[in-house]
Simulated assay, not measured.
Amino acid sequence: MTVLDVLDVLVVVAVPLMGLAGGTFWAFSTGVMPGLRRTDDDTFVTVMRSINRAVLNPLFLVPIFLSPLLLAWAAFLELGGPRGLLLLSAALVYFVGAVVVTLVGNVPLNNALDGSVSASKDARAAFERRWNILNGIRSGASVAAITLAIAALTHGPGTS
């Protein structure tokens, strides 16, 4: 297997993984959170606490955290060329927009909601709007990174 073959495999694995993570973010933005918006405060807090605990599993975590590593590895294999720049851009956009936002934004909000002793109305008010904004950033970053990674595949050897 050549370096270019390895690069293609890395990207072909990273893109669906980002799609799974980004699709999860998108599903929350377009279905889960709008559905929960229609519930009372106690139901909202109970359901989000349950989801936040359930999501801590390899099927959710591996796609989120493995994707930028694969893209960075692929970018390293193609340093200096247009593919390398696209792959590095994809890795950085995804890492900052999905991974960092998750770790410094969504997770602390999840933890605060989980540990809150405030009334459900107050806990929800401190959580919902901020969490939704951050989740929108994760969704957008996932789409942008997937687009950049696919563009890198189309700029392979022999393409213009």
Rank of each mutant, 00 (worst) to 15 (best):
M1T: 12
M1R: 13
T2V: 01
T2M: 03
V6N: 08
V6Q: 04
A14K: 05
P16A: 14
G19A: 09
L20M: 09
A21M: 15
A21Y: 09
F25L: 01
F25P: 00
F25D: 00
F28E: 05
F28S: 04
S29V: 02
S29K: 00
T30S: 10
T30L: 09
G31M: 12
M33N: 15
T39C: 14
T39Y: 00
T39Q: 04
F44G: 06
T46N: 14
T46S: 14
M48Q: 12
A54D: 15
N57A: 13
L59S: 13
V62C: 02
I64C: 09
I64F: 12
L66V: 08
L70N: 04
A72C: 14
W73H: 15
F76L: 13
L77N: 11
G80I: 10
G81V: 14
P82I: 10
R83K: 11
L85W: 08
L85M: 04
L85C: 05
L85S: 06
L86H: 01
L87D: 03
L88Q: 14
L92W: 05
V93A: 07
Y94E: 03
F95G: 09
V96P: 00
V101P: 00
T102A: 00
L103D: 06
V107E: 00
N110H: 03
N111A: 08
N111K: 10
D114K: 08
D114A: 14
G115V: 11
V117W: 08
S118N: 09
S118K: 06
S120T: 13
K121T: 12
A123G: 02
A125H: 10
A126W: 10
I133T: 05
L134V: 05
N135L: 02
N135D: 02
N135E: 01
G136V: 04
G136A: 04
I137H: 01
I137G: 01
R138D: 00
S139H: 07
G140C: 04
G140D: 03
G140L: 01
S142I: 05
I146W: 08
T147Y: 06
A149P: 05
I150K: 04
I150G: 03
A152I: 06
A152F: 07
P157C: 07
T159W: 07
T159D: 06
S160Q: 15
